[in-house]
């Protein structure tokens, strides 16, 4: 318990001073992106890991948050930072609709419905050019030249998201979410309005994912539907972040976010230029292999199986 507390305090200090010590734009950028994935992964984990409703469509909320922020600039002439709050809210409105349709289904059917939902919304946004500029995407002017403000905004968002979810899971809602995951019929017979609470979980999840999307718009200053509504880069990546780190754990998705952003960048850059260029094309394959590895050997994710990893490492040390 004490070791845990000390680790958390050190983690807090390191995350606060990191960009002051590491001045490289490149590394700061990677950590900002990883922090954004902490938000998305934790949100996905609330719905899938804790509530048992595995979503293959989190790009719906991410993309909607991003476009809300973008449209605030292009159509309303307001700051994209306003879009940050509203990005979360508009994502919740979409979530109401997604929940209304998809929660009629259970298990894999729910997952497929969210997947289809994501693709449908991507097509709508692509074709509704008068509002979204279609394939052209939306380009805005960044508010800051330095990465520091973005870093601290991303850090605040990540902290808030993890902390709020932690508090929720300690409350009545948390008990309800896990009950629904374990047995929906038993939960209903225990007096739990399963439809309502699945939607509550989805709404919280969508809110933070939408905020992350709006942050992405502000930070990257450019979005198009192929990126922010991407099945592969957003929806699947959210799942990977969750399961690699450890589903149904508080900090699992945070660990998963850093691992996955690291893996993704290693391959995108073809091992930082050390390996032949074609490697960067293979990153989808590597994602696949990673998933298989995690499911086979670390079914509970890096954090969930931390004890197992430690034992294994000690055994190697002992035999040396």
């Amino acid at each position: 318990m004490k070791a845990k507390k000390i680790t958390l305090i050190i983690l807090g200090i390191v995350s606060l001073i990191f960009p002051l010590v590491i001045r490289s734009d490149y590394y700061q950028h990677l950590v900002i992106i990883a922090l954004m994935w902490v938000v998305i992964g934790s949100s996905w984990n609330l719905l899938a890991g804790y509530t048992g409703q595995v979503s293959f469509g989190h790009a719906i909320f991410f993309g909607t948050g991003a476009y809300t922020a973008g449209i605030f600039v292009t159509k309303l002439g307001m700051s994209a930072w306003w879009g940050m709050m509203f990005g979360g809210i508009v994502a919740m409105v979409f979530a109401l609709f997604v929940g209304w349709i998809c929660f009629r289904l259970r298990g894999p059917y729910f997952a497929l419905a969210t997947l289809a939902g994501g693709e449908i919304i991507r097509l709508i946004v692509t074709n509704w050019e008068s509002l979204t500029e279609g394939m052209m995407g939306i380009l805005i002017i960044q508010s800051f030249r330095s990465k520091l403000p973005y870093y601290y905004i991303a850090l605040t968002l990540a902290f808030l998201c993890v902390f709020v979810i932690y508090l929720v899971m300690k409350s009545k809602w948390g008990y309800y979410f896990v009950s629904i995951r374990e047995d929906q019929d038993a939960a209903e017979s225990m007096g739990i309005n399963t439809t309502l609470y699945k939607n509550v979980s989805l709404l919280i999840s969508a809110f933070f994912t939408g905020m992350a999307g709006a942050f992405y718009m502000n930070y990257m200053a450019f979005i198009d539907p192929q990126v922010v509504y991407s099945l592969h880069y957003i929806s699947i990546m959210a799942i990977l972040v969750g399961i690699v780190g450890g589903v149904a754990t508080t900090l699992g998705p945070a660990v998963g976010a850093f691992i996955m952003v690291g893996v993704q960048e290693t391959f995108r850059s073809a091992f930082f230029g050390l390996a032949p260029k074609w490697i960067s094309q293979a990153h989808a394959l590597v994602f696949g292999l990673l998933v298989i590895f995690v499911i086979m050997f670390l079914a509970n994710g890096v954090l969930g199986d931390w004890g197992k990893i430690k034992r294994y490492v000690f055994r190697i040390k002992a035999s040396n």
Partner: peptide, 25 residues
């Protein structure tokens, strides 16, 4: 209140967790 003939424990919750979730009724 009811019980199920084919029992439906909330498997990956503790015993007290099961009952606490129910008490929130």
């Amino acid at each position: 209140g009811r019980t199920f003939q084919v029992v439906k424990p909330l498997s990956r919750m503790t015993v007290i967790g099961n009952v606490t979730a129910s008490a929130f009724c």
